[in-house]
Simulated assay, not measured.
Amino acid sequence: MGNKHYKKAIHSLQKRIDEHLEKIRIEEAKDSPNHGLIEHWRKEILAFEKGITKATKRLGK
C-alpha cells in the first residue's frame, strides 16, 4: 500500500481519537457519568493510537 493510504489512515484515526476525547469530556461533565462507557472509549483510543503507530512505521517515519 502506498504512502497516501497510510496518511489517510493516520488522519482518520486521529479524527476518531478527537471525537472520542470529546465524548469523554461531555460524559465526565454529567452529574452521573457512565464510567463504563468512558473506559470503553479510552480503550478504543488506545487501539487507534496503536494503529497510528503502525501506519507511521509503514511510512518510514
Rank of each mutant, 00 (worst) to 15 (best):
M1F: 09
M1W: 01
M1Q: 01
G2N: 15
G2F: 08
N3H: 12
N3G: 15
K7P: 00
K7R: 15
K7M: 14
K7W: 02
K8G: 01
I10G: 00
I10K: 05
H11S: 14
H11M: 11
L13G: 00
L13W: 06
Q14V: 04
Q14M: 12
K15G: 08
R16W: 05
R16C: 03
E19V: 05
L21M: 09
L21V: 03
E22F: 02
K23N: 11
K23R: 13
K23V: 01
R25M: 06
R25Y: 03
I26G: 01
I26L: 15
I26R: 13
E28G: 01
A29R: 12
A29C: 02
A29E: 13
D31Q: 11
D31G: 06
S32Y: 14
P33T: 03
P33K: 05
P33I: 03
N34P: 05
N34W: 09
G36I: 12
G36M: 14
I38Y: 10
I38G: 04
E39Y: 14
E39C: 00
H40R: 13
H40G: 02
H40I: 07
W41V: 05
W41D: 04
W41I: 07
W41F: 05
K43N: 14
E44D: 11
E44R: 06
E44P: 00
E44F: 01
I45Y: 03
I45M: 08
I45R: 04
A47S: 09
A47L: 09
A47T: 07
F48N: 06
F48A: 06
E49C: 04
E49H: 06
E49G: 03
E49W: 02
K50G: 09
G51A: 06
G51I: 07
T53N: 11
A55D: 13
K57V: 01
K57W: 00
L59M: 08
L59H: 11
L59S: 10
L59N: 10
L59V: 09
G60E: 10
K61F: 04
K61Y: 10
